[in-house]
Every structure is written in structure tokens, then in C-alpha cells.
């Protein structure tokens, strides 16, 4: 009836396909990073301006991804952007007075939240709010500042100051 060689070839084909699916899931997609199944706790923070931050962006601490932005809304009383994020349970000992910044990956990259740890002995827990925040750096504002300072006075030290500020802020995002 069914030739054996044919069955073996089909078995080989199916194995190859399944192996390819596995390679794609484990090598290509970042299954092991924060995101999927593991437990998280929720923290919120309010920002003046979130720039281009989107839900799903990563939350990092010292460059390590520790969570993701869950939701972005407007606080109706303060007109600030309220960002809620899910942080993995394995990073449960983040000091309560830590600050959150909106940073950009590279010059043109995606925006994400960077947490800078504080020094308190109390830790962030589900529902806590990060009060110290720094808004996104909006390039237009920065350039506007730079141009204004250039027009206002042509003194070299002011120009140098503005350029230094620009360089600083760009550097801090690395």
C-alpha cells in the first residue's frame, strides 16, 4: 500500500517544519524576555509629555528590560499623561523613591521608560505611583530653545551652553 520511503519523507518534512517553527519561536522571537506568561505588578507614573511613547514599550532599569508599558491615559484633573506599566515580579525590590524617565533608543529609535533607582528601604508594589518623573525630550522644543538662545544673544558662551545641553541630553539617553 503506502510505501515506507514516502512515509519517512513526509515524517522528515513535518519534523523540519516543526523544527523551523521552534527556531522562529525561541531564536528569533524573544520568548524569554519579559512579556508573556510571568507574573507582574502594576505601577503608574505621570508625565508632562510622553512624546512618542506607546503601550507595549519596554520599561528598563540600568538597561535591563524589567517590564512593559500597559496603558497610557490622561489624568483629567492635572492634564498629565498617566502611564501604567507592568513590572515583572522578579524585580520586586525597586525603591519607592525611584524616578522614571522617558528615553529614546538611539537618535531615531523607539521611546521607552528608564527607571533610576532611589535609596529608600520601602519598595514599589502593586498600585504604587512613581512621583519623580522626567518627560520625553521633544526634539522640536530643544531646537527651538537652541534657536532662541542664538537669536537672543550672539555671545559664544550661550551658544556653547545650548550645544552642550543638547549633547548632554542626547548622551543621557544611551
Amino acid at each position: 500500500m503506502q510505501s515506507r520511503a514516502l512515509e519517512i519523507l513526509v515524517g522528515f518534512f513535518v519534523c523540519l517544519g516543526v523544527a523551523a517553527v521552534f527556531v522562529l519561536t525561541f531564536r528569533v522571537a524573544s520568548l524569554d524576555s519579559v512579556g508573556g506568561g510571568d507574573k507582574t505588578y502594576r505601577v503608574s507614573a505621570e508625565f508632562q509629555n510622553i512624546g512618542g511613547l506607546k503601550a507595549g514599550a519596554k520599561v528598563s532599569l540600568a538597561g535591563v528590560a524589567i517590564g512593559r508599558v500597559r496603558d497610557i491615559s490622561i489624568d483629567p484633573s492635572s492634564f498629565q499623561a498617566k502611564v501604567t506599566m507592568d513590572i515583572s515580579d522578579q524585580y520586586s525590590k525597586i525603591p519607592e523613591d525611584s524616578s522614571a524617565k522617558i528615553l529614546t533608543a538611539g537618535l531615531l529609535g523607539e521611546q521607552y521608560i528608564g527607571i533610576e533607582p532611589g535609596g529608600m528601604d520601602d519598595y514599589l508594589k502593586n498600585g504604587s505611583e512613581i512621583t519623580l518623573t522626567q518627560s520625553a525630550l521633544v526634539l522640536e522644543n530643544l531646537i527651538g530653545q537652541f534657536l532662541a538662545s542664538q537669536n537672543g544673544s550672539s555671545k559664544d558662551d550661550k551658544l556653547a551652553d545650548a550645544i552642550g545641553k543638547l549633547a548632554d541630553s542626547l548622551q543621557s539617553k544611551k
Binding site: 513535518v14 523540519l16 523551523a20 527556531v23 522562529l24 528569533v28
Partner: peptide, 15 residues
């Protein structure tokens, strides 16, 4: 067959 072939194609093309 189609998803299996697609997975093989992707692995070949990327990796």
C-alpha cells in the same frame, strides 16, 4: 503543509 513550508522559508531566509 503551508505553515510548515512558511516556517522553513523564514528560517532559510533569516538564518
Amino acid at each position: 503543509a503551508m505553515p510548515l513550508l512558511t516556517a522553513i522559508f523564514c528560517v532559510m531566509a533569516i538564518g
